[in-house]
Write a protein that binds this DNA or RNA. Sequence first.
RNA 1: GCGCCCUUAGCUCAGUUGGAUAGAGCGUCUGGCUACGAACCAGAAGGUCGGGAGUUCGAAUCUCUCAGGGCGCGCCA
Length: 669
Amino acid sequence: MYRHLESRLAESVRDFLRRTYQLEIAAVVIEQPPKIEFGEYALPIAFELARKLRKPPRKIAEEIVAGIGPVAGIEKFEIAGAGYINVRVKRAEIAAALAADQAPAAAVPPGKVLVEHSSINPNKAAHIGHLRNAILGDTFVRLLRFAGREVDIQNYIDNTGVQVADVVVGFLYLEEKSRGQIEALAAAPRFDFYCWDLYARVSQWYEQDKQNLQTRAAVLHAIEEGNNEIAAIADLISTAVLKRHLETMDRLDIEYDFLPRESEILHLHFWDAAFTKLKEAGVLTYETEGKNKGCWIMRRAGTALTTEGPSASLRAGSGDTEETKISEEDQKVIVRSNGTVGYVGKDIAYHMWKFGLLGRDFGYLKFFRYPNQHDCWISTTDGEKEHPHFGDVAEIYNVIDARQAEAQNTVVEALRGLGHGEAADRYTHFSYEMVALTPRCAAELGYDLSEEDKARSWIEVSGRKGFGVKADDLLDALIASARKEVDSRHPELSEAERASTAAQIAIGALRYFMLKYTKPSVIAFDFEDALSFEGETGPYTQYAVVRATNIFRKGGFDPDSFCAASPVSTEDFAKYLAGPEGDEIWGLWIAAAKTSYVVGQCIATTEPAYLAKHTFQLAQLFNTFYHRFPILSEADEGRKKFLLTTVAVVRRELMRILAAMGITVPAVM
RNA sequence: GCGCCCUUAGCUCAGUUGGAUAGAGCGUCUGGCUACGAACCAGAAGGUCGGGAGUUCGAAUCUCUCAGGGCGCGCCA
């Protein structure tokens, strides 16, 4: 609603400037006045135009206000200060539309969106860093779907890499387990935890004697080769760990549609197809001298001497004749001198497939059925005939931490070099910073800290050292903590009700915690902060909804149908939304009207934290309102109906935005 | 050395395209439960927005520079 009004306002201003001053303004800046009494929108445009029109801002503001004419939904324009134009909306009209939940349809861009997230190495338990990735990715998916987009969720599985090889080495050479023994372990609960410890031991074993690395090389080679006992064991381990990851993420209500695996990138020869095209386009060049002699190389992203458009396209078109030699340090090896392809090369092939540019496809098998009956598919060489159509999408978002920015940019540059500039432009590296531990948290986990480490604001987790907080452990701790509160507050509830309430609160706390920080901020994890249910937390926002629901329950009304069943007249809206008290309540209405506006901002900036902040602010405004205005005891029936309508609308919008963050609200808390 | 990111209240962080007196949570202090349940609310204290220069009517926000911190830069993934 808010978003719709804003764009209509911007359009009117643009029209006015065009017909009055023959000016074309690309983006009309619209902001919010510091106080709701000033209006809902503020236009600083007169300042911007002062120089251009060589008139004082106030004069321009006067001309705009006098000449802009009526705008639907807008009450009036006022000049404030040196030239601000404050805009007041027709409160009653807007409120009536909101109460009726009449959201104007927004235009949805065509084409499917692919979001890749999680992509956890299937060799050990998921940890808090993976949780940030999955929660960011899953929330972004929900935001896109909220905005009407069709989305495919993919989770890339590197099942043939060194990390899986390391755990295979652990089972076969440190523990000397048979295939049968490994199978038995893999079927036991929390096999991923077992691998977590084993992986750390293998890393130590390598440290003890570098000779041991040869064992890794041999195992890795066998895995990549396929069709042998070691490869079969690697597959059973990685598949079992992968299932555990899916179970862990399902606890947070995070699901995937398709799991492309590296083994199929290899066995279906995706790389061969990509390699041919990359050579033809001159993206890859064969190095004949220096340290990378015998390799196929590419210019590392961000190292080009000139980045201007014309020279870039000239380079792409005319091949390598004008290409200056890439200096050794700017070279990125894509194919090694022994003929094997590296990680970036496989990623290029995978991304060509994502955009439907490779000319090959995976085989597909049903892999995992969620409790809600949704099927998650996995790649295979020879799959089922009937399967959904994956890939071939219009836009992609890769939720991958900031450390991989350069590799991601290299993939984008490869696409550009292949002549797929449009695809490259619709490739977004959804970059975020890592989750580290506070020194205090590290100490709690029994990690020995140097004096230097103690002085740091955070310490990086390390899978190799087995140092970190496992996702399932954190969830268990959150649920236990929430359960204690629920037990003491609601002894009357059944065991099952208390368990599900605690789980909802725990998930709300965790998801909000991971979303409240903006992406470039390193999260220094601490149990005390993460286990908090007060202040700026998920449970605070859930509690606001519970309170709203309680009002309806105690009053004997149904919150979902209340607005439709007993509509407030436009006259009454006008009456109760006027004056200082009306201003106060209107602030809550206007915040509740911003859902799609904020969602749009989050998508445009790939920043879900804005939604978390907004949710908290809306909950906070509601809590203040809740204290200021007793509702059930209100004697004036008309006013009571208005106040209940206010609560119903806020509750509805809060539940919507929480759902977009993957947070549900318990019946009581 | 090159590239990317960060530096805002005691602590942890917001501040989206430059805009009206720089915000929140936690912590500290003072108040508020006869309940639409206090997982809450009201109030107080707390900031030369890392330093400097520039652009602008206007800068936490843009540019340059200096300082401090992080990450990346492998024939690993």
